[in-house]
C-alpha cells in the first residue's frame, strides 16, 4: 500500500482509493489528479469523534476526499511532519495543527480534564486551543502542521522534557503531560500569565515541538 509522500517540506501527496478515504482540514487541498470528490464532514456522517467535536464547538472544518487519485495538501506555507501510526499506537495533537489523516484512523476528541484532572484542563486553556485535543489511533498516517517545522524529542523514563505550551505540537506514546509553574520562569519571560506555565512531559514516547511560539 503506497503511503504518504512528502513532496517537499510544505507539501504532502496522499493516495486516495475506495476504502482509503482521507480527512483533511478545509481549504488545505492544493491540487489533485484522478477522479476525486470532496465532501464536508458533519456529525451526521457518524465519523467517530465528529459529534464530540461539534459539541465541543471545535471550529476546524474537515473535508473527506473520496474516489481514486492523488491529492496534494498544504496549508499557509507551514511545515509538515508525516507521522505513521501502527496498531496500538496513538497520537495526540491540537486540532488546529492537524492537516490530514487516513479516515481509517479512529479520531476522538479528548477533554483534557479526563487526563490529569483540573491541571490537564488548565493546559488546554493556557495553550490557547480550548480544552480539547484530537487523539488518533489505529493503522495509518497523519500529517501535522508546525510553524518552522517540528522536531521530535525522545522522552524516556528518567529523561523528562519541559516544553513551552506555545511551541507544543503534539505527542505519541505512553506519555503523561503535566502543567507546572516554574519558579522564576514567569519573571524571566516577563509576559502574560500563560507564559508562566510549562508542560512537563514524562514516560516513554516522543513529544513534537515547533520552532516558534506562534499559534495559527
Amino acid at each position: 500500500m503506497p503511503g504518504y509522500v512528502q513532496v517537499n517540506s510544505k507539501v504532502v501527496q496522499v493516495p486516495v482509493a475506495p476504502g482509503r478515504e482521507v480527512l483533511a482540514r478545509r481549504g488545505a487541498m492544493l491540487a489533485y489528479t484522478g477522479q476525486v470528490t470532496f465532501r464536508p464532514v458533519t456529525a451526521a456522517q457518524g465519523i467517530s469523534g465528529m459529534l464530540g467535536r461539534a459539541v465541543a464547538g471545535e471550529t476546524v472544518k474537515q473535508m473527506v476526499a473520496e474516489g481514486s487519485g492523488q491529492v496534494f495538501y498544504g496549508h499557509l506555507g507551514l511545515h509538515l511532519t508525516v507521522i505513521d501510526l501502527t496498531p496500538g499506537e496513538s497520537l495526540q495533537v491540537e486540532a488546529d495543527r492537524l492537516l490530514c489523516h487516513d479516515a481509517s484512523l479512529t479520531s476522538s476528541v479528548l477533554f483534557l480534564g479526563q487526563q490529569g484532572g483540573i491541571r490537564g484542563a488548565v493546559r488546554g486553556a493556557v495553550s490557547g486551543q480550548g480544552l480539547f485535543t484530537t487523539q488518533l489511533a489505529g493503522d495509518g498516517s497523519a500529517v501535522v502542521l508546525a510553524h518552522g517545522g517540528a522536531i521530535g524529542l525522545q522522552v524516556t523514563p528518567g529523561r523528562v522534557v519541559a516544553v513551552d505550551p506555545q511551541a507544543y505540537v503534539g505527542h505519541r506514546g505512553q506519555l503523561s503531560v503535566d502543567v507546572t509553574a516554574k519558579v522564576g520562569w514567569r519573571e524571566a519571560v516577563g509576559r502574560g500569565s500563560g507564559e508562566a506555565i510549562q508542560l512537563r512531559v514524562q514516560g516513554q514516547g516522543v513529544v513534537y515541538v515547533q520552532a516558534s511560539e506562534q499559534k495559527f
Binding site: 517540506s9 507539501v11 487541498m29 492544493l30 473535508m63 496534494f72 498544504g74 506555507g77
Partner: peptide, 24 residues
C-alpha cells in the same frame, strides 16, 4: 465560494503546471 475543494483550475492537454506549496 470559500475553498479550493469547491472550485479548481482544470488543466488539460500537453504542458507543465507549476504549483506552490501553499494556498496563501
Amino acid at each position: 465560494i470559500v475553498s479550493g475543494e469547491e472550485r479548481q483550475f482544470d488543466f488539460t492537454g500537453a504542458g507543465t503546471v507549476l504549483i506552490q506549496s501553499s494556498e496563501k
